[in-house]
Design a protein around this nucleic acid. Structure first.
Length: 402
DNA sequence: CTTAGGG
DNA sequence: CCCTAAG
């Protein structure tokens, strides 16, 4: 029943967005769509949490929309288009939602074992997380002209991973509403000076939003506008020119050939979303470590960027971080009063990473990274996926797969 | 061209 | 992410 409401809500929003951007529907991403689709489809009975969260957001929807109406009047169009889907949960619900998610994660930690069995549960959490991030972004984007410094630093500081999203999310969410109002008046003054800051954020936001939305789309099967929202976004993007267009979602940027192709592969970074990370981990589990091209072609086929090298780099980073906070990620982050300073990866994902790491260590390291922690003999829990496949993975290098 | 490794 | 070296 909750699901119904959720669906309804989403659809509603989609329609709203669609009106504006109906013309340009974006192709591609099917891979990801289906990819995530099955993730979403499966966990029907997993836990109420998902629905709970969404419903929660929904409850605040109307309120939010109204708020946006006045607070973001100056860039209303933008807000609707970019914020659209995201912002529905945003603003007022931010904190609570965060809490919910947070708690959710904790719970997952606890029952990790159970859920690990269906590795969808992990995906589900991730999915949730993913949603959470962009929301923050959109909310922030709207508001913090004034607080841009804060937001900026946060988005900049976050590592290419997902961690960034969380930190920016936590830090500012509380002030989002007030900031929005404030910014409304300040915008005129600061408009110029923040512009650069702005497009920067777009970038970061995009890295997040694009894929994330992809994640959502399967749920709403017909939401293809998200990608399109990129288009509408451009006008707002004053000076960021090509870089920005490049930041559009995957296949999108091919279509939007704007001025040059030099920016095809964005120079700086395209934030890794959780969905992507999951895919990567997934792929590694299936095809083995080191077969980056295969993984790229099979799992990231629709991702214009993300070269095999990128995948490898990301994996390297994942290994590093996963072994870094090894046991308690919570301890490291809170330290001060920096509430949600940095939330690394969702526990389930970390688990998978570590498992994969133990299974096939990154070339040339052979048990230095994970040895320090608690190496769980594979007998403990075969993450369903990795267990059966890993051994042949490295061997069947003949490319006879496809 | 793909991967590994370092920056 | 970028660049280089090695297979």
């Amino acid at each position: 029943m909750k699901t119904d409401r959720k669906q309804h809500l989403i659809k509603k929003l989609c329609n709203m967005k669609r009106q504006r951007v109906d013309q340009s529907i974006v192709p591609g991403l099917e891979d990801e769509a289906t990819e995530v689709a099955h993730l979403l489809a499966e966990p029907k009975s997993e836990h109420v949490s998902r629905d709970g969260v969404l419903c929660f957001g929904k409850d605040n929807l109307e309120k939010h929309l109204k708020m946006e109406d006045f607070s973001c009047a100056f860039d209303y169009g933008w807000k609707i288009n970019y914020g659209g889907l995201d912002s529905i949960h945003g603003q007022g619900g931010d904190d609570l939602k965060l809490e919910v998610l947070d708690g959710l994660l904790d719970e997952v930690d606890e029952v990790d074992d159970i859920h690990a069995a269906h590795d969808i549960s992990g995906a589900c959490e991730d999915f949730l997380l993913d949603i959470e991030f962009p929301e923050k972004h959109s909310v922030l984007d709207c508001g913090p002209r004034e607080g841009s410094t804060l937001r900026n630093s946060s988005s900049e500081s976050h590592s290419p991973g997902f961690s960034g999203s969380s930190n920016s999310a936590g830090g500012i969410s509380e002030s989002s509403i007030p900031t929005v109002q404030e910014s409304n008046s300040k915008n005129g003054v600061l408009g110029n000076m923040v512009s650069c800051d702005l497009h920067r954020n777009f970038r970061s936001k995009y890295g997040c939003q694009g894929p994330v939305l992809d994640t959502i789309r399967p749920t709403i099967e017909d939401v293809q506008d998200l990608d399109v929202s990129d288009d509408d976004e451009e006008p707002l993007e004053l000076e960021s020119d090509c870089e920005f267009s490049a930041s559009e979602s995957e296949d999108q940027h091919k279509r939007t050939k704007r001025s040059k192709t030099a920016c095809d592969r964005r120079k700086h970074q395209t934030m890794w979303t959780l969905a992507e990370v999951i895919k990567l981990v997934d792929g590694i589990a299936q095809y083995g470590v080191g077969r980056w091209t295969d993984i790229k072609r099979l799992l990231f086929a629709s991702s214009a960027y993300r070269t095999p090298v990128d995948l490898r780099d990301k994996w390297r980073n994942l290994l590093r971080s996963s072994s870094a906070h090894g046991h308690n990620r919570r301890e490291l982050q809170v330290q001060n009063n920096v509430k949600h300073a940095v939330r690394p990866l969702p526990k389930p994902v970390v688990r998978r990473i570590r498992e994969l790491a133990t299974i096939h260590p990154y070339p040339r390291v052979r048990s230095s990274k994970i040895s320090s922690v608690d190496y769980v003999p594979s007998s403990k829990q075969p993450t369903t996926k990795v267990a059966p496949v890993y051994s042949p993975a490295r061997n069947l290098r003949g490319k006879n797969c496809c």
